[in-house]
Write a protein that binds this DNA or RNA. Structure first.
Length: 857
RNA sequence: GGGCGAAUAGCUCAGUUGGUUAGAGCAUCUGCUUUACACGCAGAGGGUCGGGGGUUCGAGUCCCUCUUCGCCCACCA
């Protein structure tokens, strides 16, 4: 029992409870309880890119609402927190903050320290290990900022269960995963054309690619046909002319049918290339005949993969044209000297400059036809990149997914998606897959592949005999650790070894987030108590990556789904209905919102948005939350005061016997059932709306109606019933609001209860075993209706609500009159009606006429 | 080009399986110092439920079609 404060200051109260919750450990996961008793969340590890966003607050609140409900249902909660700190976003930030760039060939410098005052320095090159240290320095700061925000927001995370995707544990799980996939023949390495970002200098996967519309030009080029004749090709990429390996037209295209089987001669380079039929050639597009180059687009790749054509690799990893020797295969030509002379002007140039020069050459050679024609085209970009992707042949690791489409669809359908239509997104994505998962990246701050390659007598790696790390020794870094059977001095030596220099796609680690938490492969007991998990909360734009890859991994490793449910939060839109994003400059930082409105109010705003629904950022809704918070505080203070007035004590539900109280309790019981059903299907917003609606009516109508009986001096049955019902109402409503407004409900709960409300049990039917049967179910509604009529009369008479009513004439059906009589005393008192002026007349419908007294008495 | 979702009061949103005069909050207007709360209470005005067809005794709710917006996907010569 503590003193009830007069006022509620959300900032001091929230700071206080935040600390108390941590000290008391009420949100800790209990590793001794069984899987059935446990509710496990696959918390999204936020990308620690330094920027905090209201969108974060929005979606993480949704998770917490579900978690807090489950906790009150008695579940042992496993709600961890991870930090996604590896990958390109971190590398980019670190490069900018410290003005550094990674050069993996440099040796580690133990004395080097990152400096933030980079103003007038040139970009500094540092070793991979130094670079990673700089990354870690930044991410630790970012993680602290996130944790502070999460704590203040009231996320009921178990802060003992945290991980960072670059930490040793995550690297170990990621490498274990990789070795398991190698063992299961699901991971393979191949030299093949791969989508390549020339700026980031890395391969990228299909899931990270987006199409962007660009302005472009068709250039018309005349090709000669061997043995006579010519034709014109329209191309947007004339710079690929030296890489042309064939020209193709549709097999049914009468214009070109006679040419199939002959050779065309490329202008300038004078290379003879076959004229072939190809289904993908569209007679309507361009001139109906096109160049096949290695490689201009994915059609070229697909066609080339069918075999029979040489590989003329002219695009280098930096996006410049490679030097080549004309006159030797595959760069055959009828005029080696001329071809070489022309090409030497292009070698070393960036693609864009090469294009311009080729166009000039074509014009000089008379092979350019007319002026370039502007067009729009969709070009593939790495989602974080600025220049178009190129298809470059390189050695990469892949994970087999194309051949498992059916199985992956089946697994996806075993999972329940909320809202359900989000399941279609992953189904369509799986159906549309056209490449295996390219999982290696030519980057530095990431998880290394636990692989080395033996070197032959010429110190060339033998990729057909990779050396895998011993699973017991993970994590390893093949660039500094020595493979089994070798000594470190054999590194890079003839007949020695070399480490795989690549790192894994960041999703290769994030896709293991359930197993990272459960310690798959390391602690079977823990794993079985946490996996498969209950719910994966996430946003919809990463269904094709995070959700998809996690499903892939769980199936490949253990032939199971990773979780039973996926909940998808919507986006926050600014008032113009645009998605909020940093680049648009319309982001609202969440810290000051919590200060200004309180965490409870910001959570209220988030809780009103249903899963999958995009929501406008609206501080008005937060203000509405603040009103609710204040009302909860004031109403609780008052109800407790009434309950405990002059030494009276409110009893249990069995004390509830008065018709009005019985009816209220029955309505409340319905509310509890409805809210429980809503929460069970992750509809926290529906539960909140119903609870809020009930609460305001409880305050305005019910509390007013029972004041008379609760104020009685004698310990009557009527008073006992009123006090017990007030107690039941207050304690039930507080718990229903608990998940949404954890701070203010905890504050109020603490006045009269020893433990946390967040460990209290969720209201259930058994709490509504009242001391009487309901004879007039409509009594409460009727009482409210009559009271409203009385109030209306006072408002229309411009009198205050205490103004006495001289006469009250009620006409109603016989049953309603009976019901009304049972609660009439409460109604008359609440309306300040003179009992002597009341007439009850049987009749049709319900009609109420109130006549105000002349004087205020 | 294909798919998914959305369109309800000035604004932000509810409207369960089709069923009486379509709801809430904010905003607007009007009253009320009422001893829990003026971040309150009592009221009022405000919507042809995007357009058009159809099914039905009855449609915001089901079917078709169109329009607008958002998102996802698509082979980009």
């Amino acid at each position: 029992m503590s003193e009830i404060p007069d006022k509620y200051n959300h900032n001091t109260a929230e700071e206080r409870w935040m600390k108390l919750w941590e000290e008391s450990g009420i949100y800790r996961w209990d590793p001794t309880r069984s899987r059935e008793e446990t509710f496990v969340v696959d918390t999204p590890p936020p990308t620690v890119s330094g920027s905090l966003h209201v969108g974060h607050v929005f979606s993480y609140t949704h998770q917490d609402l579900i978690v807090r409900y489950q906790r009150m249902r008695g579940k042992n909660i496993a709600f961890p927190m991870g930090w996604d700190d590896n990958g390109l976003p971190t590398e980019r930030r670190v490069q900018n903050i410290f003005g550094i760039r990674c050069n993996p060939r440099l040796p580690y410098n133990p004395d080097w320290k990152p400096r933030r005052d980079k103003d007038d320095r040139d970009v500094e090159e540092v070793s991979r290990r130094n670079f990673i240290e700089a990354c870690q320095l930044v991410t630790v700061e970012d993680e602290a900022a996130f944790e502070a925000l999460w704590r203040r927001l009231g996320l009921s995370v178990d802060w003992n269960q945290t991980y960072a995707t670059i930490d040793a544990h995550c690297r170990k799980i990621s490498q274990l995963s990789f070795l398991d996939l190698v063992e299961k023949k699901q991971a393979y390495q191949v030299e093949a054309p791969t989508m390549w970002d020339i700026d980031f200098q890395t391969a990228v996967a299909q899931a990270e690619v987006e199409d962007r519309e660009r302005d472009s030009f068709y250039h018309d080029i005349r090709f000669q046909v061997e043995g006579g004749g010519d034709f014109v090709i329209s191309t947007t990429r004339p710079e690929l002319l030296p890489a042309c390996v064939a020209v193709a037209a549709h097999p049914d295209d009468e214009r070109f049918k006679p040419l199939f089987g002959k050779n065309a001669i490329t202008p300038i380079f004078q290379a003879a290339v076959p004229i072939v039929p190809a289904e993908h050639a569209d007679p309507e597009k361009g001139t109906g005949i096109l160049m096949i180059c290695t490689f201009g687009d994915s059609n070229d790749v697909d066609f080339w993969k069918k075999g029979g054509l040489p590989l003329k690799q002219i695009i280098g990893l930096q996006g410049t044209l490679l030097p080549v020797e004309w006159g030797t295969a595959p760069f055959t030509t009828q005029d080696p000297a001329a071809a070489q002379k022309a090409y030497d002007e292009l070698a070393g140039q960036h693609l864009k400059k090469a294009r311009a020069r080729v166009v000039e050459m074509l014009a000089e050679a008379g092979a350019g036809v007319g002026e370039p024609r502007p067009t729009k085209q969709f070009v593939k970009f790495y989602e974080k990149g600025d220049r178009p992707l190129e298809f470059v042949s390189s050695r990469q690791w892949f994970i087999r997914i194309l051949e498992h489409k059916e199985k992956l669809l089946e697994m996806s359908r075993q999972i329940q998606w909320h809202p359900d239509h989000m399941r279609l997104r992953i189904e369509h994505w799986i159906e549309g897959l056209n490449q295996d998962w390219a999982v290696s990246r030519q980057r530095y701050f990431g998880v290394a592949f636990p692989v080395w390659y033996p070197l032959d007598a010429e110190a060339q790696p033998d990729y057909s005999r990779p050396i895998y790390a011993d699973a017991r020794l993970l994590p390893v870094d093949p660039l500094s650790d020595t493979p089994p059977g070798y000594s470190e001095d054999q590194r890079h030596q003839p007949n020695g070894f070399t480490g795989d220099p690549d790192v894994m796609d960041t999703w290769a680690t994030s896709s293991m987030s359930p197993q990272i938490m459960s310690h798959w492969g390391l602690d079977a007991k823990r794993h079985n108590r946490l996996f498969p998990m209950d719910v994966r909360p996430q946003s919809h734009e990463i269904i094709r990556t995070w959700a998809f890859y996690t499903i892939v991994k769980a199936w490949m490793h253990e032939n199971t789904i990773p979780w039973k449910h996926v909940t998808i939060s919507g986006w926050i839109l600014d008032p113009d209905r645009k998605k909020m994003s940093k680049s648009k400059g319309n982001v609202v930082t969440p810290g000051h919102l919590l200060e200004k409105h309180s965490s409870d109010s910001v959570r209220y705003w988030a809780a009103r948005a249903r899963l999958g629904t995009d929501t406008a950022f609206d501080e008005k809704v937060m203000e509405q939350g603040s009103k609710l918070r204040t009302k909860l505080f004031n109403a609780s203070k008052f109800v407790l005061g009434v309950m405990e007035r002059s030494g009276a004590t409110a009893g249990g539900a069995d004390q509830i016997t008065h018709p009005l109280d019985l009816a209220m309790a029955a309505n409340l019981c319905d509310l509890v059932r409805g809210s429980t059903e809503s929460f069970d299907r992750f509809d926290y917003a529906g539960a909140l709306a119903a609870t809020e609606d009930f609460f305001w009516n409880f305050c305005d109508d019910y509390v007013e109606l029972v004041k008379r009986r609760s104020y009685e001096e004698e310990d009557t049955a009527g008073r006992r019933s009123a006090l017990a019902a007030l107690k039941l109402g207050l304690e039930t409503l507080l718990r229903l609001f608990g998940p949404t407004m954890p701070y203010v409900t905890e504050e109020i709960w603490s006045w009269r209860h020893p433990g946390s409300i967040h460990r209290a049990s969720w209201p259930s039917d058994s709490e509504f075993e009242t001391g009487g049967r309901i004879e007039h179910p409509g009594a409460y509604t009727l009482a409210v209706e009559v009271l409203k009529k009385v109030r209306m009369a006072k408002t229309e008479g411009k009198k205050n609500l205490r103004w006495p009513v001289a006469r009250l004439e009620i006409v109603a059906g016989a049953d309603d009159l009976k019901a009304l009589e049972s609660v009439l005393e409460d109604v008359l008192q609440a309306g300040a009606v003179d009992p002597a002026g009341v007439t009850l007349t049987p009749g049709e419908g319900l009609s109420v006429k109130a006549t105000l007294a002349d004087n205020a008495a």
